[in-house]
Amino acid sequence: MDAIKTASLTKYYGKSRGIIDLNLTVAQGDFFGFIGPNGAGKSTTIRTLLGLTAPSDGSAQILGMDISRQKEEILSHVGYMPSEASFYRNMRVRDVITFSAGLRHKDCRAEAGRLCERLELDVNKKIRELSLGNRKKVSIICALQHMPRLCILDEPTSGLDPLMQREFYSILEERNKEGATIFVSSHILSEVQRYCRHAAVIREGRLLVSDSTQSLGHTDTKRVRLRGAGVKLPLELPAMKDVQTDGDSVSFLYSGSPKELLNVLAGLNLTDVSITEPDLEEIFMHYYG
């Protein structure tokens, strides 16, 4: 049984495109990154999976349950953290956390207390007094306090300082080791590469690729960096992308023949050459370039 499985999932808002024919599979126990630029359809996918919007076509299952027919049962096993954390402004943090647990008919006080301590959250403050980062922390606690089997997190680290981001991901890694599936939507590719085992890229509502982050980083494309007085643009190489120059240095993504590359490089007066695997950020640029 997969944690998430969509079959030709499609969502239109009137005539506007949301997602088109999305076929996405996330295995149980995975730590999965969902990558795409703003407006690509990441949030639409998540909102459709959670029943906030109804699909226009196709179907989806979460933990083996149909999203249209078993919504409440699905939500009892899911912890969701939206990209923008909004709560009832006049309520105190502890009341929001208790209300969230109450809606789940669960006593989550012990776990909520542990999470508040780790995230250094003052539960006596009113929501309206909180910064974006602290509202995010409330959102994390509401999403995790009931020990969900699947965590769906939409742009979770925006607004969190680097130390809190590390603490947050360490909590997620612990939950993942305990068996929970983690599904993170993000455009911060370094964190997807660091923490996720698998990732999918969505663009203009369509799924481009879904694979292990390791495989996504191992494409035919290489990052070539050259330094030397003799480096003059343009180089006579096809399949060059993302060309960047800085003084006597040139850097570009190359996906053509290695022999052709070496022939061109052999004719240049270079002081330094490096040919490396591009990071996920660069792969992402490659897909969207």
Partner: peptide, 8 residues
């Protein structure tokens, strides 16, 4: 969004 993503 907060309210409707609870099992209610």
């Amino acid at each position: 969004e907060f309210l409707l993503t609870h099992p209610v």
